[in-house]
């Protein structure tokens, strides 16, 4: 956490998040993110060697449901709210570069 966040990092993160920022916005965001990261320096200053890492603020575990089927949403109603649909399916523009 010692290094300040760079403009390059902000540009990269915004690209990954599909956000298009102007140069002015990038500079403003860089300064704001740097300010947020300052708060973590306060935590870095503490000795936390004996503290278990926390993954959740709630004292809960094993929240489970039974494997019981409930009705589906109505397809026509759902597709009626989509920008484009065809043959009972969502129609989307071609996507390039990712195939999982």
């Amino acid at each position: 956490m010692a290094e300040k966040i760079s403009k390059e990092t902000v540009v990269k993160v915004s690209r990954l998040a599909r956000l298009s920022l102007t140069t002015e916005e990038t500079e403003r965001m860089t300064a704001q993110l740097a300010g947020m990261l300052e708060h973590f320096r306060d935590i870095d200053a503490l000795d936390l060697a004996s503290v278990e890492p926390m993954t959740q603020p709630y004292p809960l575990k094993n929240v489970l449901r039974k494997d019981v089927e409930l009705p589906s949403l109505d397809r026509d109603e759902v597709l009626g709210q989509a920008p484009s649909a065809e043959s009972g399916r969502f129609r989307v523009p071609p996507t390039i570069g990712f195939d999982v």
């Binding site: 043959s87 399916r89 969502f90 129609r91 989307v92 523009p93 071609p94 390039i96 195939d99």
Partner: peptide, 11 residues
């Protein structure tokens, strides 16, 4: 996927 015009999605 390469060169396609559009895709249909079933969830």
């Amino acid at each position: 996927i390469h060169g396609s015009d559009y895709s249909l999605i079933d969830f």
